[in-house]
Amino acid sequence: MLSIDALEKLASQVRRDIVRMVNGVSSGHPGGPLGCADFLVALYFKIMKPDLLKFSIDGVGEDLFFLSNGHLSALWYSVLARYGYFDVKELTTFRKLGSRLQGHPATAEGLPGVRMSSGSLGQGLSVAIGASIAKKMNNDDHLVYCLMGDGELQEGQNWEAAMFAAGKKVDNLIAVVDCNGQQIDGPNERVLPLGDLQAKFLSFGWNVISMYGNDMTEVVETLKKAQWYTGQGQPVMILMTTHMGYGVDFMLDNHEWHGIFPNDEQTKSALEQLEETVGDY
């Protein structure tokens, strides 16, 4: 069992990967991935602990994770590689011609760990619901997780999905919204206020819990609590407060780092702030 300290060290390495990947190809999205690194490391290494040998597109007999906000691809690829789905050296191919590490996650190139393409926002929750229903039909008691962005909730399909999951008691599903308050054009509050998300999901019939997503202890404990809430007739929603760009001072809480790459000098400064723990790729 990995300790909180070991998970934090992994998250630091993942953050280094994200910065180096985005810098390496002069394109991509560093802000969201840095904010969600603690969550995704905890989910894979402490909560789901998937069996690498069992990976299949069908995902029968396994917990499943869907990344609805596909622009967090650098984070997901780093976690998948660090977990062992593929060689970490492959992270150098991120977003380059012929790579399995497409700009947004895809299945066509056969990257292990990825079961659905995403990037066009608002679709992941519906897909996760479908996978959850398939698990119930197959008497498979594993869980389905889905990460979404807060800005992404402006897409109407999420609310169709939210109504369905509660109305049809999809209770083997844990959805997580990355509430970093930022989107491409600025803070949510300025672009389109999301209102009271907790009240909204509660009124839709979800079991809603909150967590601070940049504290490993809290992330692990909350995910365990969320697991405990499954199987009780309601889908589970974690509203996860994070800081966009967490770990790199000049990116912190700054929407401008949603989708731009750090230059070499900025990358050097960022890497000085992020401890190399298990070795750069």
């Binding site: 029968v60 479908g130 996978a131 959850s132 229903i133 398939a134 169709e160 109504m163």
Partner: peptide, 18 residues
């Protein structure tokens, strides 16, 4: 229900499970 976008996503998800 009257939610075709959600229906297509759920259908895609159901294939992940055979």
């Amino acid at each position: 229900g009257i939610a075709e976008a959600n229906m297509m996503g759920i259908a895609a998800g159901l294939t992940i499970g055979g």
